[in-house]
Computed example of a mutant assay.
Amino acid sequence: MPRNKKTIPVHSLPEKYRGGIVVDRRSMDNFPLEEASDAHRHDYHFFIIQEKGTTTFEIDFKKHSIKGATVVYIHPNQVHRFLKTKEAVFIGLLINNENLNAEYLNLLEEIVPADPLALKGELLSAMTDTAALCIKAAQRKPDILYHTFLKDMCNALVALILSHYLEKVKPVEKFSRFETVSKAFKISLEKNFINLKKPAEYAKLLNISPSYLNECVKNATGNSVSHLIQQRVILEAKRLLYHSNKSVKEIAAELGYDDYPYFSRVFSKIAGMTALTFRNKNLD
């Protein structure tokens, strides 16, 4: 594990893709695996449709090895790296927040973390056919409607991918009020966990009382609001401990804790070990 990085690298789209969308079909023969093998994040959403072959990668400390037709979604906050590949051919869609349908953005927050899902039959055909249309749209000669057309086509592909993931959970119409509130809290938490640490602050954002928010979240997840806030912060702390050489005190400050001893106690409670123990345990 490299320790010469002050923070986790964030990969952005190349300057030539200022429109915020890249879609292409590639084989791993022309994929920059060496660059992608170092742990990093993106400032865009990354969708992969592997058509054939085998790829092994790691997302937030969890290793995945996918074989054959599979779809993968990587959220901008997730730290990941590609480890190895064999005869893989895939379609990649890179798209930033500004180009995603607002409803899809919220739904993507709900499915994170999302494990890879196998593809077959009509669904595989629908995704590869739609992706092929996206690639053709990207290759068109730019005109006044070029970006709008490309964005609409790529959102159609995102909708297909999302639908596949959402089939694995209950349909929206079957969610209880508790689950609906809990999902809204999760979306808000992902956006605000560095600056907001108190349940009452999230209740205010959702226009409900702190007690009702806690009741809903507890019923839906089995955990309190405070516990989920702390869990999300500690996940970010683990990412920084594992992938950067920042001190524990620097990480605490970056995550919004002026009280370093308090942060240390929270880390130990959630992780079951001290921050330094976690770092040392995960040294190569």
Rank of each mutant, 00 (worst) to 15 (best):
L100C: 01
V79C: 11
T128H: 11
A114C: 02
K62C: 05
K151P: 00
H75M: 06
T70L: 10
I74G: 05
N96H: 01
T54E: 15
N96C: 03
A69N: 11
D115A: 15
Q78I: 01
M153Y: 06
G68T: 12
A118T: 14
E58V: 13
L94F: 10
A131R: 09
H80F: 10
H75L: 02
E109I: 00
G68S: 07
H147R: 07
V79H: 02
V89K: 14
A126K: 12
N155T: 10
Q139N: 10
A131F: 02
N97F: 00
I91S: 09
L123V: 08
I144V: 12
A131S: 15
I111L: 07
E103P: 00
A69V: 09
E98F: 02
E98A: 05
V89E: 15
L93D: 08
D115G: 07
L150P: 08
V71W: 02
A132R: 11
H75A: 11
M153N: 08
N96Q: 07
I74A: 04
L94V: 00
A102I: 05
I111N: 07
L94Q: 12
F57W: 00
V112R: 01
P116D: 11
K136C: 06
V71I: 15
A132I: 02
F82E: 12
F149C: 07
T54V: 12
L145C: 07
A114Y: 03
R81I: 00
A69H: 11
C134D: 08
F61G: 09
L107N: 10
K120R: 14
K136G: 06
V71D: 01
A69P: 08
T56L: 04
A126P: 01
F57S: 04
H64A: 07
N99E: 06
M153R: 13
T70M: 15
L108P: 02
Q139A: 13
D129A: 14
F149Y: 12
E109A: 00
N77T: 05
A138W: 03
A88P: 10
L119G: 06
F82P: 00
G92M: 05
M127E: 13
G121E: 12
Q139R: 13
A131I: 03
K136Y: 06
G53M: 06
C134R: 02
V79M: 03
S125T: 14
K86W: 04
A114Q: 04
I66S: 09
E110S: 06
L119R: 07
D129V: 13
K86E: 15
G68P: 07
M153S: 13
L133R: 14
I59Q: 05
C154D: 06
H75E: 06
Y104M: 08
L123Y: 08
E58G: 03
K151Y: 02
P116G: 08
A114K: 01
P116T: 06
L124S: 14
H75C: 00
F57N: 09
I59V: 15
T85I: 01
L117G: 02
